[in-house]
Design a protein around this nucleic acid. Structure first.
Lengths: 139, 139
DNA sequence: GAGTAAATCGTAGTCATTCCGAATTGGAAA
DNA sequence: TTTCCAATTCGGAATGACTACGATTTACTC
């Protein structure tokens, strides 16, 4: 998803267009990796010094609920990135050095649903952690 | 892993046998599902009212480090369960109602390592969330 | 049984996140 | 364009999980 699509989605869901929301979404579009609320605040501190934490947290949660963002929980923090909606269902490799993500199309959920016939399955999480090629050589 | 094996492991790593550690490990053996530090404190409150949070957190972390426990992060909390060491590498289905877990032998990591030849892969997480058969009918 | 390092206690501190009342503002309606 | 109001934001306080730390107690060795 890109910035313009995200703004359309916001409008269609009855949300207002505010400078805070524009700045947060522009940042996430540019970074293309998982950022925490704190990361967002730091990155916007210069151009938006008065943006409160409440605003950052509330908007990130809203965006995540309406699927503009993808969300995960890592190292005791909630982290967010732009939703990859050009592709179907997918997961990510996450570089623990730089935060870079790599899309993975592999998902074993078909086998899981077959293996658990009497269970209701609502959700799942599949994430791979390590170092990306850039950080392998750098470290 | 069971209580006795866990106590052996503690001894072999030079840890002392204390009433706190016994109580925590007995509880986790009995429950056989993911518990948070808070869950542990509540469950032990009657018989061990003076056990401090420091003791609970420190011991859960130690046990996790030495692979007596398995650990995950769920709903903003660290959760722990006895390590399933009779079986090889595995993952879990986790019931969001009662916390019951079901072992999954399915894991797609071979395909992932093939798909990411120039990445260093250190770890991964694969969890499935939903309702177990008991909670399906109850809910 | 005495000595010592480990473990625990009680409490205070940290950090991410949420809550809340007051002030501001985007955007529809007049 | 101006008015208006619910949505949004701000600032700061509150919450909750987790960690840190000095003082005290305890498990284990000799």
């Amino acid at each position: 998803m890109n910035f313009n699509l995200a703004m359309e989605k916001l409008k269609s869901e009855g949300f207002k267009r505010t400078p805070s929301r524009e700045a947060i979404l522009r940042l996430l579009e540019r970074e293309d990796r998982y950022l925490s609320a704190g990361d967002v605040r730091k990155a916007l501190a210069e151009k938006h010094p008065k943006m409160s934490q409440d605003t950052v947290y509330r908007n990130l949660s809203s965006f995540s609920e309406m699927k503009i963002l993808e969300e995960t929980e890592l190292g005791g923090e909630r982290k967010f990135r732009m939703h990859c909606d050009r592709h179907g269902h997918h997961h990510h490799f996450i570089c623990m050095e730089c935060g870079r993500t790599e899309k993975l199309d592999i998902c074993p959920m078909e086998q899981v649903t077959l293996a658990l016939p009497s269970f209701i399955i609502d959700d799942h999480k599949f994430e791979v952690y390590g170092q990306c090629p850039d950080c392998c050589t750098a470290g």
